[in-house]
């Protein structure tokens, strides 16, 4: 178990790469409205399941500024598209989006279109805000609840501590996905996007706090017996005042816990939204977008529909890289690694 300030040796190259990806993803999510060429709900005519438009810089005539060939629907029934290699549609920068098609009737579809002719790239970018936002808020909530609960148990001690921790262990054993599913399914199905956002974050926090609580309790219980806590007490600090001195010692643990919580909660968001209990249409979230993809025909004919899955993978992979220490820390769906490292 890590404690206190965990600066350690210099960052490994893997950690640097991981952090760089995470920063890029965070920027992409924050700036999504300015990056996405289309709005999340925009349905482009005759573009259902249109394949990605390839951005090119070279054709038979030589090099050009970035452009793509116009797409036309050649067979409506079989949803086949052809490209007209005779004309070039140049890309422009900064017309309502970072990259945009210069022709109004020729949309730029970097990752193709879904069944309603909506731009998958724009939806993945805009969906990042909802998926990552709700995950981060939920994880922070879990840290907050867990830290408060754990610290309270450690200070209370004795029988109260034992019962509180028994309760935490009870919730800990329940798989978070099921807990979120049950609570979400029992609440009204149709809610506004903002309500869903807050509700899901709350449910994530309520499902994921026990592991944090256990760790914080263990750390606080040890720290309370150390000299500086003793000194604070001798100087007349009350119980809660001492906790305020001790809590910073859990910082390293909480940071490591965040790296475990985010993949677990992203997974829960994806699963719950996939079932249609997530964000309402046309608000995109990565899980909601994957609903359409779990169909063998769609998968084989429009594999770009898996773009949100790729996005999920990239985020979790970057987290693994960023969190990897010199000695590896494995993370399974839940929080396997921290169990392995704390023998209690």
């Amino acid at each position: 178990m890590m404690r206190g300030h965990d600066t350690g040796p210099a960052m490994t190259p893997a950690q640097r790469v991981g952090r760089a990806i995470l920063v890029a993803v965070a920027l992409g999510a924050l700036l999504a409205p300015w990056i996405a060429p289309h709005r999340a709900g925009d349905q482009l005519t005759d573009r259902a399941y249109a394949p990605p438009t390839r951005v090119r810089v070279h054709d038979a005539a030589g090099f050009h500024a970035p452009f793509f060939y116009p797409q036309t629907l050649t067979d409506r029934l079989r949803r086949q598209f052809g490209v007209d290699t005779a004309t070039r549609v140049p890309l422009v920068i900064g017309r309502g989006a970072l990259l945009q098609s210069s022709a109004g009737d020729q949309p730029l579809l970097l990752l193709g279109a879904d069944s309603l002719g909506r731009d998958v790239f724009s939806r993945v970018a805009l969906g990042a805000r909802w998926s990552l936002g709700v995950t981060l808020l939920g994880a922070l909530g879990a840290l907050l609840i867990g830290a408060m609960f754990g610290a309270f148990a450690a200070v209370a001690g004795g029988r109260a501590d034992a019962w509180l921790m028994r309760f935490a262990d009870f919730v800990l054993v329940l798989p978070a996905v099921y807990l979120v599913l049950v609570l979400r399914a029992l609440l009204p199905a149709v809610l506004s996007t903002a309500d869903v956002f807050l509700l899901m974050a709350l449910l994530f926090a309520l499902a994921a706090w026990p592991h944090v609580a256990r760790g914080v309790r263990a750390i606080v219980a040890v720290e309370l017996r150390r000299d500086y806590a003793e000194a604070a007490r001798a100087a007349g600090a009350g119980r809660w005042r001492v906790v305020a001195h001790v809590l910073p010692a859990t910082r390293g643990f909480l940071a490591a816990e965040m790296i475990l919580l985010v993949p677990a909660l992203l997974s829960a968001e994806a699963a719950v939204s996939y079932l249609g209990l997530g964000f309402p249409e046309p608000t995109p979230s990565w899980g909601t977008m994957l609903q359409e993809a779990a169909n063998v025909r769609v998968l084989t004919e429009a594999p770009w529909m898996l773009a949100p899955a790729a996005a999920l993978f990239i985020v979790v992979f970057a987290l693994q890289l960023a969190g990897a220490r010199a000695s590896t820390r494995a993370v399974f769906f839940d929080s396997l690694a921290s169990h392995a490292s704390d023998p209690s």
Binding site: P263, L266, S267, A270, A271, Y274, G287, L290, A293, A294, V296, L299, T300, P303, L306, A309, L312, F313, V316, F317, L319, Q320, L321, A324, T328, A330, V331, F332, F333
Partner: peptide, 17 residues
């Protein structure tokens, strides 16, 4: 390292593909 980063939803869809 790559496999550990695959969430169940992602893994199931990728294998299905």
């Amino acid at each position: 390292l790559a496999l550990v980063s695959i969430l169940p939803v992602v893994g199931a869809l990728a294998l299905l593909l």
